[in-house]
Amino acid sequence: MSLQEQWVAFLTILTKEIRRFLRIWPQTLLPPAITMALYFVIFGNLIGSRVGEVGGFDYMQYIVPGLIMMSVIQNSYGNVVSSFFGTKFQHSIEEMLVSPMSSLVILSGFVAGGVARGLAVGAIVTCLALFFTDLRPEHLWLTLLVVLLTSVLFSLAGFINAIFANSFDDISIIPTFVLTPLTYLGGVFYSLDQLSEFWRGVSLLNPVVYMVNTFRYGILGVSDVNVWISLGAIVTITAGMFCFCLWLLQRGVGIRH
């Protein structure tokens, strides 16, 4: 396939993915908006007013970047895992496998779809947050870069989950028992400085901590971790996962006999 044909194929998958999550918007766009609005009301307004300041900001301001990142992570992951597994389950993956599209195009298309949903939900949550607090990013480009990279990383994670999944249970186990605890314990609602030395050390093993804090640094200018080391780690892990996904696709793991 020529480069132009590969580009058309990539756009075809991306458009199909966007059309899919827009078509089922009550399942994809609405729930995170409602959940996050509840977080803003309950944790930000009702409980937050009693918590006081964290890291020099009101509690509401402090948790907003983490909540935006949480919705981006969950939706990027959720989009790819459900879409790719659905494609496998219905055997419509065969439509792609018989075509001359390269594994790179297939992977990029699904990841771009995950990023599109992650960013769309992130944008919705950001707009909702503006009703509760003021948001003026301190480092706009860093903010955009880290949200994009995180979205790519979790789209890839969703892809790996879908590749190995054999049933619908398999695609809900990781989000429920791994992704949700990692996100909730990833410094979304608190600063690592509030933890004891031991739990701070344990928290630093959680990759979500680095993403949330780098994003928070982009918006508020404060972070519990070194943002440049975080950024380097995110880029490295993302590149590693991309190569791993490509290898899985080329070998046909989970999709070819």
């Binding site: 020529s2 590969q6 756009l11 199909k16 001359p100």
Partner: peptide, 30 residues
């Protein structure tokens, strides 16, 4: 190659026209 498999292997919830147009896109057809 064009392949017509034994089992139905398209997304049952997609529109008929979209299924065919999307497949063309997979082959790089604008």
């Amino acid at each position: 190659i064009g392949v017509v498999p034994q089992e139905f292997n398209f997304n049952q919830f997609e529109k008929v026209g979209d299924i065919v147009v999307t497949q063309a896109g997979f082959y790089g057809i604008p």
